[in-house]
Design a protein around this nucleic acid. Structure first.
Length: 571
RNA sequence: CGGAGUGUAGCGCAGCCUGGUAGCGCACCUGCUUUGGGAGCAGGGGGUCGAAGGUUCGAAUCCUUUCACUCCGACCA
C-alpha cells in the first residue's frame, strides 16, 4: 500500500494521559485513537495488526480441532440469573433494557451463552468432546480503565469453551490448550510464563494464566529461582515459613495467660513490647465481606505477624463476592476490640479464618479481645473448618516444590485457561446422555486470550526510545520502502520498481511515497515499527539501497539485484 | 466509591484572579524555495470557550446546577 493514500495520523506530541510505551506509541504512530474512557478506534494500521494477531490465534485453534462460532453480543439477563452471575459479576456488567422493558447485558464473557447453545443442540456423549470458540468484542464496565489497550472497557477477546463427558477428558483438553496457547504466544514473539492462578469470577477448580513478562505488568507473579514454579501472587503458595533460629534453650516458652499490654495496637509495637520476632505474634485483619443480595458481614483473618493478608485468598476463604475495608467504629459496634483481637473469646457469630500455617503452632501471642490485653502462650486449636491459605507469599520465601528462593516479577495477563467442571452446566441444566442412557451435566473447560491486549503486550516487550518494534507475525507490514526524495525521478522510479517486485513476491509492503523530507519519513518508520525498511536515496547512484532492521536499527547496504532475495529470506 | 484536577480550533496549551473585539505552538490549505534525520519565507482557513440556568449594559472570565474526562487510591479476566 501507499503511505500517501493511507490514513496514518502520526504525531510528535506525547499524549498527556499516556504513561506506558505501548499506549504512547500506539497513539502516536496512528494505530489507535481514543474515543472515551477505555474505548478505542482501530485505525488502518491498528486494524491490520489486530487482524494478523487474530489470524495466528484462529489458525492454531482451528488446527487444534476447535470450531469457530459467533454469538450474540447482546445477551438476555435471564441467562445470567440462571447461572447466578447476574449478582456476582457485579457492576462490570453493562445492563440495559430494550423497548419492551426486557433486560439485557453486553457480554463480558460468554459461558452462559455457550452453555445455552450447547444444551439445545448436543444430547449424546457421542457428540463429545466439543470445543467451540469465538473471537469477539467484549464489554466490561471496568471501574478504572487505563493504560490504553491494556485495560479497556471494550476489547477483543478469544473465548473458547470445551464440553466433555468426564473430568479426565476435560483435563486432557486443558493440557492440550496450554500447549496450543503457548504456541500462539511463541509465534507472536512473546516472552511469557505459564503460572498458577486464582479463578476469579469465572469459577471452577484449576486455572492457569499466561503472563507476558514486562515491568509495566499489572499482575505480580511469584517465580522460583530453583525450578519452573510460577504463580500469580493471588494463588501462590510456599513452603511453611520458618521462624527465627534460636540457640539451644533460647526459644521463647510462655505459660498461658493474659498480659497487660497498653499501647500495643500494632504488630511493631507488640514485637517491641515483648522483644520477640513478629513470627510469634498473631495479626488480626478485619474486612467487610459482601455477599449476594447486598448481605454484608465482618470477617476476621488471623495470620502471622510477619505476613500480609492476600485479599483474593481471603475472599475465597470467606466465600464472599468481595472484601472491603471496615472502619474502627463498625468493629466496635460489632463488639470487637480493634488492636486487641484474637480468635479466642470473640463475640458470638463473628466469622473468622486462620492461616493454615498456624495450625498446631504453640507459644504465640495474640489479642485477648479486651482493651490493652494480649494472651500469651497461645496454642492454636485444631479447628479444621477455620484453616485456609490466607497469606501473600513474600520475596525470599521458600518454594514448596524445591526449596528454592521465591521472587516477584511483573506480568501482563494475556491468556487464562480454566478447568470449569460443572460450574455452569449444572445450574443451567445442560446435560447429555451417557453410554448408559443417563443424563449427566457437561464437564467443561474455558479458555481466553485478550487479543487486543496482546497488541499492547507485544509493544511493552518490543519497543525502544523511538517507537514500536513489531514481531514478525504481528507487524502491519513486513517491509517499508522509504523513497528519500520523491521529486527525484530516479529515486521514485527505483522505489516503485522495488515496490512492484515485492508485491509480486507476495510480501506485505508499504511504500512511503509522500513528498515529506527524509527526516519525518525516518521518524515515522521508527515510530510505526515495521520490521524492515529499505531506503531508496543517495546511494542509488552506486546501485545500492539501504536495508534497515528496525530492531536495533542495523543498517546495511545492498545492491538493487540482491535486495529482493535478501528480504524474501528474512520476512 | 474516596481524594485531586481538567474541559477554550484536529492535538497540546495560554487567557479566567481583576468581566469589555478569543489567542499561541503543532497540524491543515495555497505559492515559492528546500530535500539523508521532525525545513524556510509569504499568505490563508478553522472555535455557539463541555452543557444548562443565573448576575450584568456586557460573561471563556463571576454564581448555581449538571455532564464528561484524567490522575492517585480502593477495586479488577
Amino acid at each position: 500500500m501507499r503511505f500517501s493514500r493511507l490514513l496514518i495520523p502520526t504525531s510528535k506530541e506525547v499524549p498527556s494521559d499516556a504513561v506506558l510505551p505501548s499506549h504512547i506509541y500506539l497513539l502516536r504512530a496512528g494505530y489507535i485513537q481514543s474515543v472515551g474512557a477505555g474505548l478505542y478506534n482501530f485505525l488502518p494500521l491498528g486494524k491490520r495488526v489486530l487482524d494478523r494477531v487474530r489470524a495466528v490465534v484462529k489458525e492454531e485453534l482451528d488446527r487444534a480441532g476447535c470450531q469457530e462460532v459467533d454469538l450474540a453480543f447482546v445477551t438476555p439477563a435471564e441467562l445470567w440469573r440462571e447461572s447466578g452471575r447476574f449478582e456476582k459479576y457485579g457492576k462490570e456488567l453493562l445492563r440495559f433494557k430494550d423497548r419492551k422493558e426486557n433486560e439485557f447485558v453486553l457480554g463480558p464473557t460468554h459461558e452462559e451463552m455457550m452453555v445455552n447453545l450447547v444444551r439445545q443442540s448436543v444430547k449424546s456423549y457421542k457428540q463429545l468432546p466439543l470445543h467451540l470458540y469465538q473471537i469477539k468484542t467484549k464489554f466490561r464496565d471496568e471501574i478504572r480503565p487505563r493504560f490504553g489497550l491494556m485495560r479497556g472497557r471494550e476489547f477483543l477477546m478469544e473465548d473458547g469453551y470445551s464440553f466433555h463427558k468426564d473430568e479426565e477428558d476435560m483435563k486432557r483438553e486443558f493440557d492440550h490448550m496450554e500447549a496450543i496457547y503457548s504456541r500462539i504466544f511463541t509465534r507472536l514473539g512473546l516472552d511469557f510464563r505459564v503460572v498458577e492462578a486464582d479463578s476469579g469470577a469465572i469459577g471452577g477448580s484449576g486455572s492457569k494464566e499466561f503472563m507476558v513478562l514486562a515491568e509495566s505488568g499489572e499482575d505480580t507473579l511469584v517465580v522460583c529461582d530453583g525450578c519452573d514454579y510460577g504463580a500469580n501472587i493471588e494463588a501462590a503458595t510456599r513452603a511453611p515459613k520458618e521462624g527465627p533460629r534460636y540457640e539451644e534453650g533460647e526459644e521463647p516458652v510462655m505459660s498461658p495467660g493474659e498480659f497487660h499490654t497498653p499501647g500495643t495496637t500494632t504488630i511493631e509495637a507488640l514485637a517491641e513490647f515483648f522483644r520477640l520476632d513478629p513470627h510469634h505474634l498473631v495479626k488480626a485483619v478485619a474486612k467487610k465481606a459482601l455477599y449476594d443480595e447486598g448481605r454484608e458481614e465482618i470477617v476476621l483473618f488471623f495470620i502471622r505477624g510477619n505476613d500480609e493478608l492476600e485479599e483474593t485468598k481471603a475472599c475465597n476463604a470467606a466465600g464472599a463476592n468481595e472484601l472491603t475495608e471496615v472502619t474502627e467504629e463498625e468493629l466496635r459496634a460489632a463488639g470487637l476490640t480493634p488492636g486487641y483481637m484474637g480468635f479466642e473469646g470473640l463475640p458470638e457469630g463473628i466469622h473468622y479464618y486462620i492461616d493454615r500455617e498456624l495450625r498446631g503452632e504453640a507459644n504465640l501471642i495474640m489479642g485477648a479481645n479486651k482493651e490493652e490485653y494480649h494472651r500469651v502462650g497461645v496454642q492454636v486449636p485444631d479447628l479444621s473448618e477455620r484453616f485456609a491459605d490466607l497469606v501473600a507469599v513474600q520475596e525470599g520465601d521458600r518454594c514448596a516444590r524445591c526449596g528454592g528462593t521465591l521472587r516477584y516479577t511483573k506480568g501482563i495477563e494475556v491468556g487464562h485457561i480454566f478447568q470449569l467442571g460443572t460450574r455452569y452446566s449444572e445450574p443451567l441444566g445442560a446435560t447429555f446422555l451417557d453410554e448408559n442412557g443417563k443424563a449427566r451435566p457437561f464437564v467443561m473447560g474455558t479458555y481466553g486470550i485478550g487479543v487486543s491486549r496482546l497488541l499492547a503486550a507485544i509493544i511493552e516487550q518490543h519497543h525502544d526510545e523511538r517507537g514500536c518494534i513489531w514481531t514478525r507475525e504481528s507487524a502491519p507490514f513486513a517491509v517499508e520502502i522509504i523513497v528519500s526524495n520523491v521529486k527525484k525521478e530516479e529515486e521514485r522510479e527505483a522505489g516503485e520498481r522495488l515496490y512492484r517486485q515485492l508485491l509480486e513476491a507476495g510480501v506485505e509492503v508499504l511504500l512511503d511515497d509522500r513528498t515529506e523530507r527524509f527526516g519525518p519519513k525516518m521518524s515515522d518508520f521508527e515510530l510505526m515499527g515495521i520490521p524492515y525498511g529499505v531506503v531508496v536515496g543517495k546511494k542509488l547512484a552506486e546501485g545500492t539501497v539501504e536495508l534497515i532492521t528496525r530492531d536495533g536499527m542495523v543498517r546495511e547496504d545492498r545492491s538493487l539485484e540482491e535486495i529482493v532475495p535478501v528480504l524474501l529470506e528474512r520476512v
